[in-house]
Amino acid sequence: MNPLPSNQLGENWARFLAHWIASCFGFMLNRLLPLVLEWPAPAEHAIFPRWWVLLGSAGLASLVTVVFNANLPVTSRELMKSAAMGFAISAITQMFGLI
């Protein structure tokens, strides 16, 4: 039995969790960047999601990303792909007004 390289976790929950966290980060980054950009002069009627809605929607939407990326190794390149996919899912849900 050959040991795994040091940059791979193997087929287990740790790999699943690593890609899920990266995807949640990308999802929340898309939702929070407008808030950070408007921080010096906030808009009067800006509506931003509550923290629990943001975390819940990021967690649920990121499950789609994990289905596709859970078999990939845990490297910086693959985690960036998961974060970008989470960012894209957030953009799609905003475009269609799902969240």
Rank of each mutant, 00 (worst) to 15 (best):
W13A: 12
W13R: 11
W13E: 13
W13C: 09
W13T: 09
A14V: 02
R15G: 00
L17V: 15
L17K: 08
A18I: 08
H19A: 06
H19I: 02
W20T: 04
S23M: 07
C24R: 06
C24P: 02
F25W: 11
F25N: 01
F27A: 09
F27K: 07
M28L: 14
R31V: 12
L32S: 03
P34W: 06
L35C: 01
L37C: 02
A41I: 12
P42Q: 05
H45G: 15
A46G: 10
F48D: 14
F48H: 15
P49S: 13
P49R: 13
W52Y: 14
W52G: 08
W52R: 11
V53S: 13
L55R: 03
L55Y: 08
G56V: 11
S57G: 04
S57L: 00
L60A: 15
A61F: 06
L63R: 12
V64W: 15
V66Y: 05
F68C: 13
F68Q: 13
N69M: 14
N69P: 01
A70H: 13
A70D: 11
L72P: 08
P73N: 03
V74S: 07
K81N: 11
S82Q: 01
A83D: 03
M85H: 14
G86K: 00
F87W: 05
F87E: 06
A88H: 00
S90E: 07
S90W: 07
A91N: 02
A91W: 09
I92H: 08
T93V: 10
M95K: 09
F96Y: 14
G97Y: 06
G97V: 06
L98K: 04
